[in-house]
Design a protein around this nucleic acid. Structure first.
Lengths: 185, 185
DNA sequence: GCCTCGAGTTAACCTTCGTTCACCTGCCCC
DNA sequence: GGGGCAGGTGAACGAAGGTTAACTCGAGGC
């Protein structure tokens, strides 16, 4: 695991931001957590906002990329199951990033925030299309969008529930999300 | 609607905190939003933290009280449906409070935070017991707890989805939550 | 050997923001 | 009609915290 100092800092910052909230974490805290002190971080990042921005851009783009792969499966029901499984897997592997993803978006500067929102919207769109193909004639566009958001809420609840073993949690969440979407129409 | 100035301030503060995040809202912002200016708020509250604390204590106690009523229905399946319906109703009526409820808890002082956590835990416990009675032999304690958190995540996703008409959204979310919990075991 | 440069350090700066202070009002009550 | 209190005001204070500045130090390249 040759993780660059830069990446190490990002990782630690993500954890701290998720645990305590963006504004409650000082630059000194982040520095201390990687063994350097405060202002040294400016050798690696333009500032605190830049760190958060980079994290959120990465997350949203990574989710979209993974999602596009899985959504390209021909059978809509299988594609939907794959999307769900992918989201569950990601949420379990990176609970900090999931937490950041919907707690800290308001703190990133406007221009970049719009960019992130576009990527997020594309990811939602992916799900909506697949969900409507998987359950034809049962969901209109707006309902599907709401149902997909609900499924995200379900899956992304995992950061609150990490005490349960993943072997059990992952398939359970997948089953629940699938059932919820099936019941949406 | 004879809403006292105090309540008006709390309501406005909840909206601002939910929209922009606790730390991004200044006392001057809250004051301006109710037509008075900054320091005047100290005539009604001990400080900014006190406002947030009062909001969160109220929410959690209100949820628990409503929940206890609904959980007391004899038939477990009906009780579970009633709990779900109640949570959906609350989430749709008070999206700001729902947002606060899981975004801002870290910002309240330790002592009060523990008190709020206890009430929250009691509410979760209510759901867990009802869910296990409604689906006997299919959920152990830990799974049930995770499943309940997932259901909360599903229902509490509504703040992201307020564009959809409530007449459609409310029953859909209830159906989804019910199906998700049924699929958990 | 010297120069550069990346990566740190500490001290200082400066803005933001929660909070306090001193003061002002209108209203109610007797 | 004068005292008191609820509810405001604007000015000032003080701590927190993100950022900058000036300096140091070790490792390669020529």
């Amino acid at each position: 695991m040759t993780v660059s100092r830069r990446d190490q800092i990002l990782q630690v910052a993500a954890r701290l931001f998720a645990e305590r909230g963006y504004h409650s974490v000082g630059m000194d805290d982040i520095g201390a957590a990687v063994g350097i002190s405060g202002p040294a971080l400016y050798k690696h990042f333009r500032g605190k906002e830049a760190m958060l921005t980079e994290l959120l851009v990465d997350i949203s783009e990574q989710l979209l990329a993974r999602g596009e792969l899985r959504a390209s499966i021909e059978d809509p029901k299988q594609a939907l199951a794959a999307l769900i499984e992918g989201q569950v897997e990601f949420a379990l592997r990176h609970p900090d990033l999931i937490t950041l993803h919907d707690h800290a978006l308001n703190q990133v500067p406007t221009a970049e925030r719009h960019r992130i929102r576009r990527v997020q919207r594309a990811y939602v769109e992916l799900w909506v299309e697949v969900a409507m193909k998987a359950h034809p004639n049962r969901l209109d566009d707006r309902e599907a969008r709401a149902a997909v958001h609900a499924a995200f809420g379900l899956i992304n609840s995992t950061p609150h529930t990490l005490r349960t073993p993943q072997r059990i949690l992952a398939p359970m969440l997948s089953r629940m999300a699938l059932a919820a979407l099936a019941a949406a129409g």
